[in-house]
């Protein structure tokens, strides 16, 4: 084992530690914002694990989509809700729920560990071992095109559904935020009157 392999192994444990610390913060934090920040740390660790599993592209996508997008959406969801100190008292649970949580997690752990250790994993006879983004993109757009199209349709439906859901309970005045203002600020009017004829050179 060379020097660089030792460094690689050490980094692997750093990523595992990131995942463990992040998920511990996520499930035990009393303030909701800390929960999401713990999730971001755990997701960064998962991105590192994807790198060790051979996919640079998935590493970058994990950072971009999860840490960049999903966590921001969650933080936004927290900020429009109640304030963090208001929530802090509420997340402390009574003993009964902790017992339920521990027993559910332990049951899942033992069931899965038994099946992991008892199964004999057999690798495929011929493996391609091509982890390049080029190979991934070709398979994605030719052979597995349906998955690609499904993702785009699901995201479109999610965006439309999110807009409909979030607009539901608004007041009468806010029904159409894109409607033209009946009386805009004075300087806007001035600006439009100045650029009215000069804006379009063909007019």
């Amino acid at each position: 084992m060379t020097f660089y392999q030792y460094i690689a192994e050490g980094l692997f444990f750093v990523f595992v530690l990131l995942i463990m610390a992040g998920s511990f913060i996520t499930i035990r934090a009393r303030i909701l914002m800390h929960t999401v920040l713990g999730l971001a740390v755990a997701l960064l660790g998962v991105a590192g694990i994807y790198f060790y599993l051979g996919s640079m592209f998935l590493t970058l996508m994990q950072i971009l989509i999860y840490v960049g997008a999903v966590c921001i959406v969650l933080i936004f969801g927290i900020m429009v809700g109640s304030t963090p100190t208001e929530i802090a008292e509420k997340t402390i649970k009574d003993r009964k729920n902790i017992f339920l949580a521990v027993s559910a997690a332990a049951a899942a752990f033992f069931l899965l560990m038994i099946s992991i250790l008892k199964t004999e994993w057999i690798a495929a006879a011929a493996q391609v071992r091509d982890f390049s983004a080029e190979h991934l993109g070709e398979s994605f757009l030719y052979q597995y095109c349906l998955a690609f199209e499904l993702i785009s349709v699901i995201l479109l439906i999610a965006i439309v559904g999110a807009i409909i859901l979030a607009r539901e309970g608004r007041g009468q005045d806010d029904k159409n935020p894109w409607a033209a203002p009946t009386q805009g600020p004075a300087h806007v009017k001035e600006l439009t009157s100045v650029t009215e004829n000069k804006g379009d050179p063909l007019a």
């Binding site: 998935l58 989509i65 493996q127 982890f131 190979h135 398979s139 499904l150 999610a158 859901l165």
Partner: peptide
């Protein structure tokens, strides 16, 4: 284990898409 390494990456990308859509829906 898999014969073609593209399959698992595609499924993982699919999971990421589902998770993003789910987060947007649940937050709204």
């Amino acid at each position: 284990l898999a014969p073609d390494p593209a399959i698992g990456q595609i499924i993982t990308l699919f999971i990421m898409g589902i998770a993003a859509a789910e987060a947007a829906i649940v937050v709204s």
